[in-house]
């Protein structure tokens, strides 16, 4: 079993890499997407809203197939890992934009007005006043999404990314010990998810303690 476990764990860096990169893309791109969704121009709001709906309506596995077997085969060569990161990053951006939007709506408009009335430049209003409050509100939803993304990264096994589920599948077929192999890989996913949830709860409690009784 130790040998099987060692083989399965070869997929761990790939799982972490796909999840972390897709999450990073989402964290960064989610912000301009959210801002475009709240633009003063109706056409941009409509365009961004439609794109978010489109991205969220299609299952992750279909996105990965579309990128890897569709764009990747006909137009330009793309590795399974890159296709997984791009696909999951795309999905991540759409979800993060909505998480940010929800968090922004919870911030009282008086916060922006208070900062603007002090003569702060709009960029500073965002950096000093809006963003810290936005991330505090968004944190629990972001942690839930990150855990979901970690589990969804298993989908990338279908296009050949040698991550945890891919390795487990290979070991199961090679050894016919499916029960043990998949139980082990399930335990690895739990071991990865629990600290994320735990850390986010601690951070949330700490940040919340500053602003409420």
């Amino acid at each position: 079993m130790a040998e099987i476990a060692a083989q399965v764990l070869l997929g761990l860096p790939w799982t972490i890499a796909v999840t972390a990169l897709a999450l990073a893309i989402g964290l960064v791109l989610g912000m301009p997407v959210m801002l475009a969704r709240r633009s003063r121009w109706p056409w941009l709001r409509f365009l961004t809203g439609s794109l978010i709906t489109l991205v969220r309506s299609i299952p992750p596995i279909v996105w990965l197939f579309l990128i890897f077997f569709g764009i990747g085969s006909g137009y330009f060569k793309i590795s399974p890992f890159a296709a997984a990161v791009v696909g999951m990053g795309l999905i991540s951006s759409a979800y993060m934009a909505e998480i940010y939007r929800g968090a922004l709506l919870s911030i009282h408009s008086g916060q922006m007005e208070g900062a603007s009335a002090l003569g702060l430049h709009p960029v500073r209003v965002w950096i000093d006043v809006v963003a810290p409050q936005l991330f505090r509100v968004a944190l629990p939803a972001m942690a839930t999404f990150a855990i979901g993304l970690l589990k969804d990264s298993a989908v990338s096994s279908t296009i050949g990314v040698p991550e945890l589920t891919f390795q487990a599948n290979a070991q199961s077929m090679a050894t016919y010990r499916g029960m043990e192999v998949f139980s082990f890989v399930a335990a690895v996913y739990i071991a990865l998810s629990v600290p994320v949830a735990w850390l986010s709860r601690i951070l949330d409690r700490r940040l919340r303690a500053k602003v409420s009784r």
Partner: peptide, 26 residues
């Protein structure tokens, strides 16, 4: 200088940080 009905203090900053912010930035 403007004072609002709902105060609009920044909840994530201490009282001192609230008063110092614009002095540093502006």
């Amino acid at each position: 200088g403007m004072v609002f009905q709902s105060f609009n203090l920044f909840p994530h900053m201490t009282v001192l940080e609230n008063v110092s912010l614009a002095q540093k930035r502006v």
